[in-house]
Computed example of a mutant assay.
Amino acid sequence: MLDDLAVLVGRESPSADLEAVAASAGVVAEVGEARLGVRPERIVIEGRTHLRWRLGDGPPRVLLLGHHDTVWPIGSLAGHPFSVADGLVRGPGCFDMKAGLMMAFHAVAALPDPSGVTLLVTGDEEMGSPTSRVLVEHEASGCAAALVLEASADGGALKTARKGVSLYEVGVHGRPAHAGLEPERGVNATVELAHQILAIAALPDAARRTTVTPTMLTSGTTTNTVPGSGRFAVDVRVRDAAEQRRVDEAMRALRPVLDGSRLEITGGPNRPPLESSASAALFARAVVLAARLGLPEPARAAVGGASDGNLTAGAGTPTLDGLGAVGGGAHADDEHVVVAELPTRTALLTALTSDLLAGPPPTAAPRRTAEPARAPRGDCP
Rank of each mutant, 00 (worst) to 15 (best):
L5Y: 04
L5M: 01
V7P: 03
G10R: 08
E12H: 04
S13L: 06
A16S: 12
D17W: 09
D17L: 07
E19C: 09
A22M: 02
V28T: 13
V31E: 05
V31G: 05
A34Y: 08
V38R: 15
I43F: 07
I43E: 05
G47Y: 06
G47Q: 05
H50M: 09
R54N: 08
G56P: 10
D57N: 10
R61E: 02
L64F: 07
I74R: 14
G79E: 13
G79I: 04
L88S: 09
M97C: 10
V108D: 07
P112F: 02
L119Y: 03
T122H: 03
E125T: 06
R133D: 07
V136S: 07
E137F: 00
E139Y: 04
A144R: 15
V148Y: 08
S152Y: 00
G155C: 00
L158V: 01
R162W: 08
G164T: 01
V165W: 05
V165L: 15
Y168F: 12
H173Y: 11
H173T: 15
R175T: 14
R185H: 13
G186Y: 00
V187N: 01
N188H: 12
A189C: 00
T190G: 14
A194T: 06
I197C: 11
A199V: 11
A199N: 12
I200A: 02
I200G: 08
I200V: 15
A201D: 15
L203N: 11
A206V: 15
A207K: 13
R208I: 04
T215Y: 06
M216R: 15
G220N: 05
F232R: 08
F232D: 02
D235G: 06
D240Y: 10
Q244S: 15
E249G: 04
M251E: 10
A253L: 04
L258G: 00
E264M: 13
I265E: 12
I265R: 12
G268T: 09
P272G: 08
P273A: 07
P273E: 00
L274A: 11
L274Q: 14
A280C: 07
R285T: 10
V287M: 10
V288H: 14
L289H: 10
R292Q: 15
A301S: 14
A301G: 12
A306I: 02
A306H: 04
S307Q: 11
G314V: 03
G314T: 10
A315F: 05
T317M: 05
L320T: 03
G327K: 02
G329N: 03
A330M: 11
D333W: 12
D334P: 07
D334I: 07
V338A: 03
T344G: 07
A347Y: 06
A347K: 03
L348V: 09
L348W: 11
L356W: 11
A364K: 14
A370M: 13
A373W: 10
P376A: 08
R377F: 13
G378Y: 08
